[in-house]
Design a protein around this nucleic acid. Structure first.
Length: 212
DNA sequence: CTCCCGATAT
DNA sequence: ATATCAGGAG
């Protein structure tokens, strides 16, 4: 049973890696702090929208204290179009304030430290681990949740349980690639509303194919 | 569990 | 009109 699932998971990954060899984080950034901010802004918002607002932000705010010292209302107005702008502005300022106090303005490269920081949960921490620190992590966002459930790689709906379930299916070295290709597949083929099962490269292993 | 929230696709 | 978008905090 479990072995069967692992075999299927392995096939699926192999095909998705060939389908999306260029899969990567689509948030624009040039250092860990910028990615941390972009990832906070990306909650319930498309990367495309985040990438529209970050260039002006990254030009204005260079260091953690630059963010921490800006008035709440100013930052709110600058990020308004990404939604949840009050919470996001609060999170960014609280995060940068703490980075400044405890980490010399740097983003720590340790998962357990990251998730303790304000505004950073498991998803954002894993994005940072995988994308800028080159360390293992399974990023479970809305896409990975949907894709892994449709492919029956897990039957859980709790993102934390999904994260652990996928960790069990693949070797640690693959986790980063798994995260990126699953996000790409969810974004460009296995979409929420109208999944394109007719051109899906892994439909052969998908119990949900054409059931929409 | 609820709340936060604007932009876009359907 | 409604669902959805690289979630996190209380």
């Amino acid at each position: 049973m479990i072995k069967d699932l692992r075999q299927r998971a392995k096939k699926i990954l192999s095909v998705l890696e060939k389908e999306y060899p260029y899969a990567h984080c689509e948030l624009d950034f040039s250092n860990p702090l910028q990615l941390a901010v972009a990832a906070i802004l990306s909650a319930q918002c498309t990367d495309k929208r985040v990438n529209m607002v970050t260039p002006a932000l990254f030009k204005k705010y260079r260091t953690a204290s630059d963010w921490a010292d800006t008035p709440q209302e100013v930052l709110e107005n600058e990020i308004r179009s990404t939604g949840f702008y009050r919470n996001k502005a609060r999170s960014i300022r609280a995060l940068c304030s703490e980075l400044d106090e405890r980490f010399n303005g740097e983003v720590p490269d340790d998962f357990d430290e990251l998730v303790k920081l304000p505004g950073i949960g498991r998803k954002t921490a894993n994005v940072l681990m995988v994308t800028v620190f080159n360390k293992p992590g399974i990023v479970v966002d809305t896409h990975v949740t949907r894709v892994s459930r449709r492919l029956a790689l897990t039957k859980h709906s709790d993102p934390v349980k999904i994260e652990f379930a996928i960790q069990e299916l693949y070797p640690e070295k693959k986790w980063g690639r798994v995260s990126h290709v699953m996000v790409f597949h969810g974004r460009y083929c296995c979409t929420a509303r109208k999944p394109e099962c007719n051109r899906c490269p892994v439909r052969r292993w998908c119990p949900s194919a054409d059931k929409f």
